[in-house]
Design a protein around this nucleic acid. Structure first.
Length: 280
DNA sequence: ACCCAGGTGAGGG
DNA sequence: CCCTCACCTGGG
């Protein structure tokens, strides 16, 4: 697993790079109540702080490297490489892992992501944590709990620059806070059922539902289609011909099966770095 | 002044 | 189903 590629792959919004006065970059991020500082070099992955058993367990679970080391991702990429297109792409994107994130945080973060840009998504999530999350060390804050977010005043949400998404965020927080939706339970039911339930949440459309399924529930059949993935699929598999969303999802399902979510990660990363935009 | 950004919801064919 | 449009907001 390549730490840098994984944390910068767009699945999580709470990581920053601290490169000041060092020869290796240090990733600083908040996972649960831990403010983690991670680094990776030729010898391996390092948890610089906090150096506690609890934090270690947290990191291993979050990065999905516990039990089997890098064997999991190796097997996944071997499977993906059966596809000639992905085999070529992997030379640029290998090492992107799937994080095990809190579905609640994923739900809210990706409602915010709709029709938005990544720097601003990060800013909004930061401000939500700052204004509603539990204070942690060094001025960092945990992601807000459903209760706190559900009870947030409009004034507070306005500071977070959510725009027209603010009512969606608050309503979703209420659903979770009041127990009217059980995010943990969604991970244990068939992916299609989980997807339907997620689509019932205002502000959650097909793309966001698939992101929650993949990044929060770890349903790896999910294949979130955003503009970049659509671009990659149309260009690399359909000779640049336009396809409908349904066609792309059907294609991904039969072509990649349970590896679809991983395939999406690589196609997304490749598109962002190699497939520039063209006007239609 | 506009257009864009990891889409969604409403309204119509 | 598929298509079209408006949409908070900050940055080109």
């Amino acid at each position: 697993m390549r730490l840098g590629r994984t944390l910068a792959s767009g699945q999580a919004f709470r990581w920053k790079w601290d490169t000041e006065g060092r020869d290796v970059e240090i990733a600083v991020g908040v996972v649960g109540r831990h403010v983690l500082r991670l680094a990776q070099d030729a010898r391996g992955l390092w948890l610089l702080s906090p150096d506690t058993p609890d934090a270690r367990a947290s990191v291993l679970r979050y990065l999905g490297v516990s039990g089997g080391g890098g064997a999991g991702i190796r097997r996944v990429e071997a499977g993906l490489a059966q596809d000639a297109v992905l085999a070529r792409i992997l030379s640029h994107t290998a090492g992107i892992g799937l994080l095990a994130q809190d579905p609640w945080e994923v739900l809210i973060s990706f409602i915010i992501s709709a029709n938005n840009n990544i720097p601003k998504i990060i800013q909004s999530v930061d401000r939500l944590a700052q204004s509603l999350g539990e204070p942690l060390e060094n001025g960092a804050h945990a992601f807000p709990t459903p209760d706190r977010l559900a009870a947030a005043r409009p004034r507070t949400l306005a500071v977070c620059l959510l725009g027209y998404r603010a009512p969606y965020v608050r309503a979703a927080a209420r659903l979770v806070a009041e127990g009217r939706i059980d995010l943990g339970g969604l991970a244990r039911i068939p992916p299609d059922e989980a997807r339907e339930q997620l689509l019932g949440i205002r502000g959650v459309g097909v793309k966001v539902a698939d992101c929650i399924a993949l990044f929060g529930l770890r349903h790896t059949t999910a294949f979130p289609v955003d503009v970049w993935v659509r671009r990659a699929v149309e260009r690399l598999y359909f000779r640049g011909r336009q396809r409908t969303l349904k066609e792309i999802q059907a294609f991904a399902r039969v072509r990649f099966g349970p590896l679809a979510g991983y395939a999406q990660q690589h196609l997304f990363a490749y598109a962002r770095s190699h497939l520039h935009r063209v006007r239609r």
